[in-house]
Computed example of a mutant assay.
Amino acid sequence: MKARITKELLNIDGPQIVLLSGSANRRFIGVAVDYPNMEYPFFCCSVHQADWINYIENKADLRFLYEAAKGRSYYLFDWNKCNDGEANLKKASLDDVEDESLWPDHGFFASYHTVEVKISNIQNETEQDFYIDGKWEPNEFSSLYAKLADVYALSFVQSQLLSPNTNQSIKSSIEDAVADRMFKGGGSYIGFYGDLSKRVSGQSQLTVNKIQYASPGVINIRGNSDIFDLMKEIIAEFEDNFSTCRDLYGKIDSALSKLRLKRQSRSSSFPSKQIEDDMFGKATELLKAIGFKNTQELYVACKGDALVYTKLSLSVFRRVNGIHKFRAQGRLRIED
């Protein structure tokens, strides 16, 4: 995987900590390490926007970024093999990830950088282009926008649950949206995602600025820049782990069908604690593979109901997979 080196955060007789950017606006941080068969090796991890803000504000150390790496995504690259500022990231093996000598020590904060890094105001709005190509049926445009809006709302939820500054009233609004929408229409999630953003904050709402129906064309949408970043991270993480996500979805969906729990009332539950634990584990694994880090907070937002939580994991998969299908067909491209 390719990533561009955007900044040397710490340079002492050469780069020691570097910042990189990848596709779908993914952010990586890398530290110089000792590693065999590489001239100038770096050990990297992907960094979630909320974690990055905490790090830059000295509310978390460098070690925390690695421990909280989104999707447990770790990589290695050779600085001396970089070409025109571009690094070739190699997925770290499980043995590499478990090698404590590669990990940064506790207690290194952003204030120790040799260059200053600023973060943008998280309230800033921006415009995001979604480029379309190929043949589209009229109903597919509305379907695409609905899925984009749903994943945007999901990203908004993640940003609120991850932020240490989110107050209890906002978290309660998220819980209320789950409770109100979860079983309407026999288990339908119609309106659930849009309801989340309406309940919590008007600033999260998407606004379509322009739709150019052509081949190629573009859908230009205005929204919160940091939520767009999270949204693109979720899509990228989903595509990296697509096989795992698809297999987990199939197992959960099949199990709920056999248990006849897909369209049951709110009072329904799993028939045994063993089955509940198994489904809860698979749902958590699915959400993490998609890129949803704070699964425990999401479970709390589901009022601790394992069946609601499990059904929500399937819903999240369907929304992100809907966007992935357009991208896999070559009909949708998201600008970094």
Score class of each variant (00 low, 15 high):
K81T: 07
Y75E: 15
D99R: 11
I132M: 13
W136F: 00
S143G: 09
D84N: 06
T126N: 05
R72Y: 14
F141E: 07
F64C: 11
A146F: 13
D96C: 14
Q49G: 03
L94S: 15
E57T: 10
K91H: 11
V117A: 03
F130V: 06
P104R: 12
E86C: 07
E39S: 13
A153H: 01
V117N: 02
D105P: 15
F156G: 00
S120M: 01
Y66C: 08
A110Y: 12
F42G: 12
Y112F: 10
V115Q: 02
N124W: 06
L161P: 00
Q158W: 04
P164E: 04
L65T: 07
P41N: 14
D150R: 06
L154H: 02
Y75C: 15
E127G: 06
V97K: 12
D61V: 09
D51L: 03
A60F: 08
Y145D: 07
K91L: 09
A110R: 10
I122Q: 00
V157L: 00
G85T: 06
F156M: 03
Y55M: 02
Y55I: 04
Y74H: 14
Y152G: 02
V157H: 01
N37L: 15
L65S: 04
N139W: 12
L89G: 10
D95L: 11
L154R: 00
